[in-house]
Design a protein around this nucleic acid. Structure first.
Lengths: 203, 203
DNA sequence: TGTAATATGTCAGAGGCTGCCATAGATTAC
DNA sequence: GTAATCTATGGCAGCCTCTGACATATTACA
């Protein structure tokens, strides 16, 4: 990794941290891109080269999560029930959260506090989630050997999986350590698995 | 209803129809509020007095749907399993769609075509859905006699119900009459009910 | 008909976001 | 080490969404 790339990564994190702190301090809506840019010592124009939008500051973690789930999916046996495979994807995300650096978990917690305090922002996070849902539906349809445009069970499986994820992350974040959040999320996964009829997602 | 209110309703529909047609013609993003206002013969400023945002043109139907579901919920027996009650709410929405005027179903179909063609917009629709989810969670928690901040099963029930709704509406709208869409939605409801373990939602 | 309530329009402006072009900095080849 | 090249950044102008403030027109009511 050359100097250029290291520098970019550093700026990226500087922008992100500056933004998160400003958001928590004075609110998301009342923080302007100009302020963030100033705090991170870059021009407003440059800001939009690091993050495609102000939203992206808060939703970037979806990119990473989606990647992890897709990778996990690729490693699961094809004859495993799809919902089970997706839940393994979720657990992989949790494992990733648990094993990340202190700085990263700090950002994670700030993010969750933000989403928790701001329903509008939470909504946009869910909107970003539909993109993942679409991608996962394609993947699951491929694994099940069905056409994603024809098979609604595929969509229901993915939608239920994403719902589980959302419910797991949603509530327990007002306060709490990463460990607690992850534990709560595991409970939610088990609750969801218990709620579904065995074999519902097969065939 | 006085002259004033009738006039307002008329303008409201004029704006809505003008906007839907423009969106379908030239795309959502590339249609400006100015164009819509001109087509509806009002000032841009007035536009924002009828619709809180450009998005609202496409998401206003959520307002109506939410209302119907809440009313239905209020009429269901308290000892009915919550998911079942919510599915009755969904069916009430379907009944409403079926029984509306030709003009309204026309708007409904245009709307669905729009959401279908534009993933971004679809995302925002889902984001608006989280608002409903929140409201419904309060209602269901009340019915179940639990604290919505503590009980995650409540959230899972509502999330699964909303997922069912989304999956049902999502796919079948590329072409198709209202009857077909409603029929497909009913299938999805049944699929969801079959997928869940009996009694899963009964505390 | 006159007065109060409300709807509309005009204007100015904040804020998000983008294209364009010049410049400063990093990288590569020689 | 220097020159040529590639890329990151900044500045500027501008579009678009959305809002507040104030003036004006329209409706409602007494």
């Amino acid at each position: 990794m050359g100097l250029r790339e290291r520098k970019k990564e550093k700026t990226r994190l500087a922008v992100l941290d500056a933004a998160l702190d400003l958001f928590l301090e004075q609110g998301y809506e009342s923080t302007t891109v100009e302020q963030i840019a100033e705090a991170a010592d870059i021009s407003p124009r440059t800001f939009f080269r690091y993050f495609t939008s102000k939203d992206h500051l808060v939703l970037w973690f979806h990119d990473h999560g989606e990647e992890i789930i897709l990778e996990t999916l690729a490693g699961r046996p094809l004859d495993e029930p799809p919902f089970t495979s997706l839940m393994h994807g979720l657990r992989a995300v949790l494992a990733d959260v648990e094993s990340s650096t202190d700085e990263d978990t700090g950002r994670f917690l700030k993010l969750r506090r933000l989403l928790d305090a701001n329903p509008q922002l939470f909504g946009r996070s869910v909107a970003r989630g539909t993109q993942t849902e679409h991608t996962l539906a394609e993947a699951i349809a491929g694994r099940r050997g069905v056409d994603p445009h024809e098979d609604q069970l595929t969509h229901l499986i993915v939608a239920f999986a994403m719902s589980t994820m959302r419910v797991g992350f949603e509530w327990p974040c007002r306060e709490g350590t990463v460990t607690e959040i992850v534990a709560r999320m595991r409970e939610t996964i088990e609750l969801a698995e218990r709620s579904l009829r065995p074999g519902w997602d097969a065939s």
